[in-house]
Design a protein around this nucleic acid. Structure first.
Length: 303
DNA sequence: AAAGTTTCCAACCGCTCTATG
DNA sequence: GCATAGAGCGGTTGGAAACTT
């Protein structure tokens, strides 16, 4: 047996809110508050709406001091920074941007900021299927030991994670007091004894119909790597070093989290575009289909 | 000018978490 | 400890507006 619906769906109004409904809801909440019970609120306020719908309307649109549109560069940076460290935790990200709602930030990320970051100008439109195909082909990431920068083209699958774990000697998963993204988390020790932490949820693509579920992915380096690479690559300068600073950044708190430019954040949030393959764009070569790791000079490629 | 396509965002859906009895 | 209800969250969708052909 499924759970009971939160309201009588047959007798509630759906769709866009009218100015009159807005006025009713606003007046009621300003006078009586929510009473801690959204389910009962619409009836008391004389609205034929579901409680959840009222809550959403109030939180995302009617409550005081809500800002809409025109995100500043500084807000962009904060969003990217937090997305890089914790993924799509929109409510937490919103809590760092006064006046912004999780829904607003989520929409902004999905429709504008992601494209801005990944360099898709709005005029460069591609049919949906073509974009999807391109995305599926680029299952690559590279880790540059010299610059200590990590570039993701897309997250590895769970199966390939296991292959890479064998080859890279996984070490214990570190514990952070800050919230980390949901999904898988892996830490690898690479050739020079530095280590790389990866986290995120998986993308699943169906070979039969070509459809893909959305992914959420991030990467980070741990304290050890921070310590050895303090002055070297963009990742270290992004994350800083030392437990206190790192935790601040993972939590998105503190002044330091605002000091980085978009280019530094790009490699951390991007599932595409920044790999550096010796095969160029020829991803159809037979070797590219092998599920194995190769090292080429200082750069490690994943196929 | 019309038709087709894409973008954007408000709103919905369904799930998990938490409080309560 | 279990069941239930409500709150909150992230993902998805519908449709209007904007843009392209």
């Amino acid at each position: 047996m499924g759970r009971a619906p939160c309201c009588d769906k047959a007798n509630v109004k759906k769709g866009p809110w009218s100015p009159e409904e807005d006025r009713q809801l606003k007046e009621y909440i300003e006078k009586y508050g929510t009473g801690g019970n959204w389910i009962a609120l619409p009836h008391k306020a004389g609205l034929k709406r579901c409680g959840k719908s009222c809550r959403l309307r109030w939180l995302n649109y009617l409550r005081p001091n809500i800002k809409h549109g025109d995100f500043t560069d500084n807000e962009d940076r904060i969003i990217c920074n937090l997305y890089a460290s914790m993924g799509s935790r929109w409510s937490i990200i919103a809590s760092h941007l006064p006046g912004r709602t999780d829904n607003d930030i989520k929409n902004y990320w999905n429709t504008k900021l992601k494209k801005k970051l990944f360099g898709f100008p709005s005029s460069q439109r591609k049919p949906h299927q073509q974009q999807q195909q391109q995305y599926q082909q680029q299952h690559l990431f590279s880790f540059n030991l010299e610059t200590r920068s990590v570039s993701f083209s897309s997250p590895p699958s769970l199966e390939s994670m296991q292959v890479s774990q064998n080859l890279l000697n996984p070490i214990a998963t570190p514990t952070f007091s800050s919230p980390l993204p949901q999904g898988s988390m892996h830490r690898y020790r690479v050739k020079d004894n530095s280590s790389l932490l990866m986290f995120g949820s998986e993308q699943s693509c169906s070979s039969s119909d070509g459809s893909c579920n959305q992914i959420s992915y991030g990467s980070s380096v741990d304290y050890e790597l921070c310590n050895v690479g303090q002055q070297m690559g963009s990742l270290e300068s992004f994350l800083h070093c030392g437990s206190e600073e790192t935790e601040k950044l993972l939590l998105g708190g503190g002044e330091a989290s605002l000091e980085y430019n978009i280019d530094e954040i790009k490699p951390l949030v991007s599932p595409i575009n920044w790999y550096n393959s010796p095969f160029g764009d020829d991803l159809s070569s037979p070797t590219a289909k092998d599920s194995s790791f190769k090292t080429q000079g200082r750069v490690m490629y994943y196929y």
